[in-house]
Design a protein around this nucleic acid. Sequence first.
DNA 1: TAGTCTTATCGTATATTTGCGATATAAGAT
DNA 2: ATCTTATATCGCAAATATACGATAAGACTA
Lengths: 111, 111
Amino acid sequence: MAIHKKEEFTHKEQDLANFAKAMSHPARIAILKVLAQRNECICGEIVELLPLAQSTVSQHLKELKTAGLITGTIDGPRSCYCINWKAFEKFNGELNFLFNALKVKNEKACC
Amino acid sequence: MAIHKKEEFTHKEQDLANFAKAMSHPARIAILKVLAQRNECICGEIVELLPLAQSTVSQHLKELKTAGLITGTIDGPRSCYCINWKAFEKFNGELNFLFNALKVKNEKACC
DNA sequence: TAGTCTTATCGTATATTTGCGATATAAGAT
DNA sequence: ATCTTATATCGCAAATATACGATAAGACTA
């Protein structure tokens, strides 16, 4: 592959791609779903709900946290995670900016 | 890794993850952007606009097509691509279903 | 037919992701 | 102090993704 070319795209393009990448695995979608459904924050309950080892779940949580889609705080001997709604709104907004704004005039697309 | 565990998640979770994965690279975001901006469908003009080799762009186009985010038809000696707005709407709808419906009652999240 | 232009696919090198067990770390309990 | 419990991190193996050059395939042109 020689060199990663990702840096040669715009900041906004990389941003959107990073958000999407954080959601590009069903395990991470499942984690976000659990966090969205519970009012109190979750820790290792997620491990119980997923068909994955504890270390693997921890890794997925770290990726979501690094991407900014969730927040995590230490609560005594356990860890507490929540969805970062603001980040999700930003993602959704950028998506809509990319597509919806241009949609009307493209109705007559050729294929 | 032994075995991919992706199959052990729900169909919906896999669906959303696949959509996200298709958008998880800045080159593919850039391609979608170009397609969204042009009324007539694009072919190798995309190659001119991206800092990537022709074969690499072709590969990215194939991934977007496989994921259903774009459509492609052969037009004489060249290929014509367009955004599949329906697929995008579905993706956006699933995202909103996952998050927005549950957002209000979670305002008092703990972290 | 031969030549050209456009796009897709193959082969390959390298990078990244995914997953797990083992181990570390940190807090609470005995 | 030791044991338990919960979570993070390390190290490794296997799978995927990314990128490119070379080549194939298809359609128009001379």
